[in-house]
């Protein structure tokens, strides 16, 4: 996708001069960026660079110290409730209930997001078929392999068809093959028009994103398409780009 094309597109997240302080420590130091509708936006950085802080602010789990932020077209200070209906979230920790069955977990989230019973049943059947989990429908989540759990958690996070889904290191601790399959799901969601905002520290995953921003010590050091970044930093792959930025 060309930058020119993206620029024409609708902005779905706008962040202007975001600052988040914890005491004297600036976790987010004057961030400004936009995310466009339907893109996969990679949010990269070493551990402690401030990625999770930003994602938590965008999801409404934490409030910024200062800055203008809009998510899905709604103001983050005043229209929190509207934002909540339009976003999905998958955290670093596995976020489904292990002592509930696959089906019960789906029922719970469908219930929380106010999806009707009939609609839920249709979507649930469709989802289980897609994930090939029909046999595991009534099994407790705790007993499923990690790869399945993660795919299910992602599917549940977008079950209510949000405009944006925030993924905070969704593939931590998963083998490369499962990660690849997980990204197939992400692409599918993006094709359906869901904007994906994903943090990761796997550089191979950065290549899958439409655009990536690289954070270091609370600041955004670079933001562009992976191809452009490789060109600017004269690097073979994103790994090299990342190392060059981090060593600067």
């Amino acid at each position: 996708m060309l930058i020119a094309q993206i620029k024409k597109m609708e902005k779905i997240i706008t962040v202007k001069n975001l600052v988040k302080k914890f005491g004297y420590f600036k976790a987010n130091d004057n961030l400004t960026f936009d995310v466009y509708k339907g893109e996969i936006f990679g949010f990269l950085g070493a551990n402690g660079a401030g990625k999770t802080t930003t994602i938590r602010i965008l999801c409404g789990l934490s409030s910024p110290t200062s800055g203008d932020l809009k998510v899905a077209g709604f103001d983050i200070y005043k229209e929190t409730e509207k934002i909540k209906h339009n976003i999905g979230y998958m955290s670093q920790k596995f976020s489904l209930y292990e002592d509930l069955t696959v089906s019960e977990n789906i029922q719970l989230y469908a219930g929380i997001y106010g999806i009707s019973r009939k609609r839920r049943k249709e979507k649930e059947a469709e989802l289980l078929k897609k994930l090939e989990l029909e046999d595991a429908k009534n099994k407790l989540i705790g007993g499923l392999p990690l790869g399945w759990k993660q795919k299910l958690a992602f599917s549940v996070a977008i079950f209510h068809d949000p405009k944006i889904v925030f993924l905070d290191e969704p593939t931590g601790g998963v083998d490369p093959i499962t990660r690849r399959k997980f990204w197939d799901l992400i692409y599918e969601a993006a094709n359906r028009g869901i904007t994906v905002f994903v943090t990761t520290h796997y550089m191979d995953e950065a290549e899958y994103c439409n655009r990536v921003s690289i954070m270091d010590a609370g600041k955004i050091e670079a933001l562009d398409t992976p191809a452009k970044l490789k060109e600017i930093y004269n690097a073979k792959n994103m790994d090299e780009v990342f190392l060059k930025i981090a060593r600067k």
Binding site: L61, K93, E98
Partner: peptide, 13 residues
């Protein structure tokens, strides 16, 4: 502890 609380708080609940 499990992290499910975050998901609940992000939801419209």
């Amino acid at each position: 502890e499990l992290g499910t609380m975050e998901v609940l708080l992000v939801s419209p609940l």
